[in-house]
Design a protein around this nucleic acid. Sequence first.
DNA 1: CGAGTTTGACCGGCGC
DNA 2: GCGCCGGTCAAACTCG
Length: 220
Amino acid sequence: MDNQMMFFPFSSPTLGAFPNHHHQQQPQSNDMFNFDFSSVLLHPNNNSSSSTSTGLLSDLSLGNTSSYSNEHQIVGGQMIDSSVVGVPIQSTTTTSSIRENSQANLDNTVSNNEQGNDQKKKAKKHRFAFQTRSQVDILDDGYRWRKYGQKAVKNNQNPRSYYRCTHQGCNVKKQVQRLSKDQSIVVTTYEGMHTHQISKSTDNFEQILMSQMQMYNGFN
DNA sequence: CGAGTTTGACCGGCGC
DNA sequence: GCGCCGGTCAAACTCG
């Protein structure tokens, strides 16, 4: 069966839909897996206005999905790696779209046998996907990326863009694509782990997501 | 001039 | 084997 799809264990996987919490409960900092990403709402890099967005959970206007004019909203995240244990997120339409894409091209690894072979050593890499509501495709996560490709993918009129981290020796990649169903949602998929610090300071949540993922995988 | 983007070509995996 | 598809390469191009 599809063994490859694991999910990042967000506590409240509200893909596509937002919780209507009137109470923004601060998550316990010690329990990163109870971190409620769906409640994160940060500004893009042009915000400046206030330095609030450095905070994980800046208590901005939550629950109003229609007014995301100039903001990013994280609407879901998944770990795409069979080596990672997680809890499956109840599927929604947006979730399945990620699943399909990931199945198509992520799980080219060996199906069941532990890749003892060196012939097809397609190293299993950490992959992590999340969705954001945003008007801009490229999010400022503090890393420097160089675009190396763009492809039209099936069943989606929006092209998929391929980026590589420009830091020497770091081969982290990411893919960015908008959902065909909901043009306002951007799906960002990371592959690999950064081997360096961020290149510049940023307020953006992508950095937060990455650090969460790194902690989850025991990276520092 | 260097760094990043664009874009068609190329490649490998997969299903038929 | 062939065609489709996703991912990558690399030359040409753009931009600061």
